[in-house]
Computed example of a mutant assay.
Amino acid sequence: MGVTALAAGCSTAVDGQVRPPAPDTAPSLASADPWVVFDGVEECAVLDLGLRPHQFPAARKETAGGSRGCIADKPRFGTAGIVLDALQGLDQVGSDPAALFDGKIHGRRMVLDRESLPSTTGDCAIYLEVSDTARVMINTALSRGTTDQACEFVQQVAAAVEPALPPVSPS
């Protein structure tokens, strides 16, 4: 499937390693318009692509996590979302370092966050690299289920949407 997740405890785990804390860095302002990296990307269509095999209804715009976000709800299963972020790269994922795991999906760098919603179970997020200062977050919160199940599901969605994302921009 092209997914290499380095998350201890996930059923797709491979030689997990805890990610060290990220250094405090500010987003780069190299471009006058950082959002140009996502030109031609429609976030709800990309999320729908990843959720289609799981029979989710169409995604809808949701800006609580960022101005370029979408969410879809499936009754008795849970929610899944996507956020395009042109202002933060993978090094700015702000979570408990013990819950972050580096890996790759189809050769693209990613960070899996096993505790995207602290003090809960059944949630997981993956951040996919677009550039040093841009990323895509795909997350899920299950109505019932474990963090391992959530991470397995979000890895499947991320693997399906990755080919629809812009190629990784050089720094």
Rank of each mutant, 00 (worst) to 15 (best):
residue 67 S to C: 02
residue 60 R to V: 15
residue 43 E to C: 00
residue 123 D to F: 00
residue 53 P to L: 09
residue 94 G to T: 10
residue 107 G to T: 09
residue 93 V to K: 06
residue 80 A to T: 11
residue 76 R to M: 09
residue 107 G to E: 09
residue 52 R to V: 13
residue 49 L to R: 13
residue 64 A to E: 13
residue 124 C to S: 06
residue 114 R to I: 04
residue 89 G to E: 06
residue 77 F to Q: 04
residue 40 G to C: 09
residue 90 L to D: 04
residue 64 A to P: 04
residue 125 A to D: 12
residue 43 E to N: 00
residue 42 E to C: 00
residue 72 A to H: 05
residue 31 S to F: 13
residue 77 F to C: 01
residue 112 L to H: 05
residue 87 L to P: 00
residue 123 D to K: 07
residue 63 T to W: 05
residue 113 D to L: 09
residue 95 S to M: 05
residue 72 A to N: 06
residue 78 G to C: 02
residue 88 Q to N: 11
residue 50 G to T: 10
residue 73 D to Q: 13
residue 106 H to T: 11
residue 81 G to H: 06
residue 104 K to L: 10
residue 99 A to Q: 15
residue 62 E to I: 03
residue 41 V to C: 04
residue 123 D to S: 15
residue 31 S to H: 14
residue 72 A to L: 06
residue 70 C to W: 02
residue 82 I to S: 02
residue 87 L to I: 01
residue 41 V to L: 11
residue 55 Q to F: 07
residue 71 I to K: 05
residue 70 C to G: 02
residue 56 F to W: 12
residue 93 V to N: 01
residue 103 G to Q: 04
residue 33 D to A: 08
residue 68 R to E: 09
residue 68 R to I: 02
residue 108 R to L: 05
residue 86 A to E: 06
residue 114 R to G: 15
residue 124 C to A: 09
residue 53 P to T: 12
residue 95 S to D: 13
residue 38 F to D: 02
residue 48 D to E: 07
residue 116 S to K: 09
residue 94 G to W: 01
residue 45 A to Q: 13
residue 28 S to D: 14
residue 51 L to R: 03
residue 82 I to H: 00
residue 121 T to D: 11
residue 57 P to L: 14
residue 28 S to K: 10
residue 83 V to I: 13
residue 94 G to F: 02
residue 35 W to T: 14
residue 100 L to Y: 04
residue 100 L to P: 00
residue 51 L to E: 06
residue 109 R to I: 03
residue 98 A to H: 13
residue 96 D to T: 12
residue 48 D to Y: 07
residue 105 I to K: 00
residue 118 P to Q: 03
residue 66 G to Q: 03
residue 91 D to H: 08
residue 61 K to H: 12
residue 93 V to I: 14
residue 98 A to P: 06
residue 89 G to Y: 07
residue 72 A to F: 10
residue 82 I to D: 04
residue 117 L to N: 06
residue 93 V to L: 08
residue 110 M to Q: 11
residue 113 D to S: 10
residue 76 R to P: 01
residue 123 D to P: 01
residue 80 A to I: 06
residue 82 I to Y: 02
residue 96 D to G: 08
residue 38 F to M: 07
residue 124 C to H: 11
residue 84 L to F: 08
residue 110 M to A: 15
residue 69 G to H: 07
residue 41 V to T: 12
residue 109 R to V: 01
residue 120 T to V: 08
residue 102 D to K: 12
residue 119 S to N: 15
residue 98 A to Y: 04
residue 116 S to C: 10
residue 120 T to D: 02
residue 69 G to N: 07
residue 35 W to H: 09
residue 77 F to A: 01
residue 58 A to P: 08
residue 30 A to S: 11
residue 41 V to S: 02
residue 45 A to K: 11
residue 125 A to K: 08
residue 28 S to R: 12
residue 87 L to N: 07
residue 43 E to Q: 13
